[in-house]
């Protein structure tokens, strides 16, 4: 039986939902795994709801849809409300608890709370709450090796924007150590 992980990342447009999904997808591809990344599209860039579905599998992937995620990353209240009930039994939820003032009532899923956006603004890492959550996800799930993921994450950043390397590195570390 193929090992497949269905991930759903949801929040407002501008929170780096699509970027976080792409980082996971790219790492999976570099590990030789099959992967699909499917975004919601439309008016998201103007602050509407944004989400993306990422499927990582050691076998060919049919449908790229993720109606029932194994892992949900909820970065705002509407996303938490909408998708928390659909997480697979035995699945995991990662919540930006600085944005979502709620706890999961479900006993059959494992919920992890990290005040990512507060940590980001405290550390001067505006816009990197998504990476903080990814760091935390790496530690909890062990989905990918931390060092490999970090190298992959910063590999696409051009030398002229080296401050981003520093910011992403710091953000991933904060989440990992939280």
């Amino acid at each position: 039986m193929a090992k497949t992980t269905n991930i759903l990342i949801a929040g407002f447009g501008g929170q780096g939902v699509l970027f976080a999904g792409k980082a996971l997808a790219k790492m999976a591809m570099h590990n030789g795994l099959h992967v699909t990344w499917l975004p919601s599209y439309g008016p998201e860039m103007r602050g509407g709801a944004a989400n993306c579905s990422v499927i990582i599998s050691d076998d060919e992937i049919g449908s790229p849809l993720v109606p029932e995620p194994d892992i949900l990353i909820a970065l705002n209240i509407p996303s938490f409300d909408k998708f928390e009930p659909h997480v697979k039994s035995g699945g995991m939820i990662f919540v930006d608890s600085a944005m979502v003032d709620k706890k999961s009532a479900r006993a059959d899923v494992e919920a992890h709370y990290i005040p990512a956006s507060r940590l980001a603004s405290e550390e001067g890492l505006a816009g990197l709450a998504n990476v903080i959550v990814l760091g935390h996800l790496l530690r909890v799930t062990g989905l990918f090796d931390y060092d490999a993921f970090l190298a992959d994450l910063v590999s696409g950043i051009p030398a002229s924007r080296s401050a981003l390397v520093e910011g992403n590195t710091k953000a991933l570390r904060i989440g990992f150590e939280y």
């Binding site: 792409k22 099959h34 992967v35 975004p39 599209y41």
Partner: peptide
């Protein structure tokens, strides 16, 4: 279609 157009894969 819009789904295949928007989705990413290797």
């Amino acid at each position: 279609d819009g789904a295949i157009g928007q989705m990413m894969e290797p």
